[in-house]
Amino acid sequence: MTVSDTALRAALRLYPAAYRSERGAELSTVFAETTAGAGAGACLREAFDLGAYGLRLRLGLTPAGLPGRALAAAAPFAVGAAAGQAGLVLAVTAKEGAPGLDASRSMWALLMLLSVLPLASLAAALFGNWRPARLLALPSVTVVPAAAVLGYWAATGAVPPFSVLAAVSAFSVPGVLWSLAVPAAPADLLGRVSRLGRSAMLAGLLFGFVGSGVQGLTRIGSAGGPASAPVLVLGLGLAVMAFLGARRGQVAPLALLLAVLPSGLGIVAGELAGNLRASLALLPVVLVVGVGVAVALRSTRERSPAGPEAALPSVE
């Protein structure tokens, strides 16, 4: 079996079973014609694109799927919130200074660059250009972990201990999820930004800055922390609203849940990093919220109207 055959089989496995049974042969034919005479690298790229579309179909992240439309609706808030958290890192770095700057100038230059990327993505998105937010998502999610590792190393000359890495990783959860929301949303739905979209971006910017600051002060800088129960109860309420709205084909409740859920997950991650035993009490609520979100997404895929996902993905 060639590399091309193995890649094609792996890509087709990502498609829903019914879709694969109906159109798998046609997809295989198009793939074979497109990659005829191509090298292994080109075959892998085509298989990646083919599989990525199959995964979108499976998750409902298409322009016709309700999860895809909800994620696109939440994207303006998400790109603003990710920039807000990165802006907080940038502000703290500027205020506190860079320890060991003379000895580790390149480290801090990298940190400053990583902190600016989400802000640059937000600036472009404000004018309807979503390409930077999609391209810079992966480097943007490294802002907080890089700040921890480089900052600790510059100050002490040593690698941060596990407790510091765990706390900072928990702090970075919301920013990671917000940054990845844009590339996960259907590109066809991320076009011109309305006045409401710009307002959502600015609201997300404020939410990400203030919310991340509170989380950072309570979970990283001190022993105490905010009460997680109210936040999780709010998350549970939003999950119920999203489920009921999804049954009616409504986008707004699910979009609201996807916009604010990263912040709640960040608090849960902070609890887990800070006190594993105490955080076990939160698991029932977390599981209920998680199941509610999964059921809501499942029901939306089943109720999605026929649309772009009925067409074959382009592998050219």
Rank of each mutant, 00 (worst) to 15 (best):
L8E: 02
R9F: 00
P16D: 02
R23H: 09
G24S: 04
T29L: 04
T29D: 13
F31K: 00
E46A: 03
A52W: 00
G54C: 02
L66T: 06
A82I: 08
G87R: 10
L88W: 02
R105P: 03
S106D: 13
L114R: 09
N129W: 05
A147Q: 12
Y152F: 09
A155G: 10
P160W: 01
A167H: 11
F171Y: 10
V173S: 07
V173W: 02
G175Q: 15
W178M: 05
A181T: 11
P183M: 02
A185I: 04
P186V: 04
R192E: 10
S194L: 03
G197F: 03
A200F: 07
F207T: 13
F209L: 12
G211V: 06
G213E: 06
Q215P: 04
Q215I: 04
R219Q: 13
R219S: 08
G221E: 10
S222N: 14
G225W: 05
G225P: 03
A227E: 07
S228E: 09
L232Q: 15
G235C: 07
V240F: 12
A246Q: 15
V251Y: 02
L258C: 08
S263C: 06
S263Y: 13
S263N: 13
S279W: 02
S279L: 05
L280S: 10
A281G: 08
L297P: 09
P308E: 15
E309R: 12
L312N: 15
P313W: 01
E316H: 15
